[in-house]
Simulated assay, not measured.
Amino acid sequence: MDIQDVLPQDSIPSIDEPSFGSSYFGDDDDDVIVVGSDPPRAYPVRILSYHEIVNDVLDGSFHSGTFTSSDASDEQLPIAVTWCPICASGIVYVRAAGGQVLTFGTSGKLADDALVMYDHETESEWKQPLGEAITGPLDGESLPVVPASMMSWHQFREAYPDGIVLQPVYGGERDPRRGSPKTAYDMTPYERYESKEAFGLRAMRGEGPERTWDRDDISAKTTVLGIVHDGDAVGYPLSVIQSEGGVVSDSVGGRSVLIVSSGGDLHAFAHPGDQFEFRDETLYGDGVSWNLATGESSDGRQLTRLPARRLYAFAWQDDHGRESFYRLN
């Protein structure tokens, strides 16, 4: 694991007291990370790119399906919504380990070009795509992954008309710079990086070692949805899922999974045992249609969303190896 010191600790400030509202200042096609609380919450990537961590708390109405954690109470679930712009790694964790609730900040370090978080309580450092402590008193501890999805703001608002969205910290009258939130959270540098073939810190900021990619079946920046269960790890590349008609049935660590993709979205559900297929961009299975954003069927049934990690292929391979991709050598 290659660890680099890049910035001072907390120079990218986490959001520790998030506020939510019904309106969003960004564009309809902006990506948001969605957590199925009541009401559902959207965390825009536009905001996350400038803060990287949101320390939040969900109440007992959190809809988790198979999720359990001995470190969370029945009434509240402390979560960290995390985003690494270099890895395009969006993962939601339960921010509890070692019998205590943790508050995360940015360490200013990168591990294999991935965000390294630290917790204020023990000063342990955590590799964001892994959710594992790599130094400190909690070294070797892992954070449980919370089921979440990524979709556009427009899709979120259509699927969840009563849903709420994270509000900006920068911009507006209380910001000494007095710029608009959209100006403060300008995505141009991140879009420029996304459009490049190169990857890593050097491609993002022009510093650090240049990285190479030695495979031609997928690109380094192919979007992957990774599932880790019972010692097994499988990464599902967007391009592979699309080549199989947008629907894949598989097993990870003995758990049957249903991976589906429409457009650029990727979703992971517990497999209910029926056959699924896309018809005219709508998912059908067991005689009914299914809404990917909500996991609901036209007759009121519900798919269980699984804990998953969305990230670039290079970051998944760094953590889990070359052989960890579905249908790739």
Rank of each mutant, 00 (worst) to 15 (best):
S262M: 13
P137L: 07
R205I: 10
Y24G: 04
G200P: 05
M187T: 12
A111W: 02
F156S: 06
E296D: 14
G300H: 07
Y160V: 06
D162T: 15
R310T: 13
S70W: 06
D16I: 06
Y236M: 03
S23R: 14
D56S: 09
E121M: 12
L110W: 00
R202E: 05
S256Q: 15
R327D: 10
S249F: 06
K127V: 14
L7P: 08
G21M: 13
G26M: 03
V45P: 00
E194F: 08
G140W: 11
I164E: 15
S149G: 14
V228F: 00
V81P: 05
W290S: 07
L102R: 01
A315G: 12
P237N: 12
S19M: 12
R95Y: 02
D119S: 14
Q167Y: 10
A42P: 07
D10H: 01
T304L: 12
S324R: 08
A96M: 04
G273C: 07
I227N: 00
L201C: 01
L311M: 15
S73F: 06
G163S: 11
D175W: 04
V234G: 03
I12T: 12
I86E: 03
V6M: 08
S11K: 12
S11R: 13
E296G: 11
D274W: 12
P144Q: 09
R309V: 02
D5N: 14
D299T: 15
G36D: 15
A88C: 12
G163I: 05
P272C: 11
P181C: 05
D232E: 15
G321L: 06
G99K: 12
S149M: 08
L110E: 01
L48Y: 01
D71E: 15
L258P: 10
D162A: 14
V101Y: 00
S180F: 01
W83Q: 05
M151G: 06
Y93S: 00
K196Y: 09
I259R: 01
S324H: 10
T294C: 10
Q242H: 13
I53A: 02
Y43L: 07
G99C: 11
L130F: 01
T68D: 09
Y170S: 08
S64V: 10
R215F: 03
Y170T: 04
V288S: 12
G264R: 13
G179V: 10
D175T: 06
G208F: 02
D232C: 11
Q302A: 11
G36P: 00
Y170Q: 10
W316D: 00
G65E: 04
S261I: 08
F278C: 01
T188S: 15
Y185G: 05
E173M: 12
F20W: 12
T282V: 14
W316M: 07
G226R: 05
Q302R: 15
D28V: 13
L130D: 02
K109D: 02
S107Y: 04
L166D: 08
V34Y: 04
I134Q: 03
G253I: 11
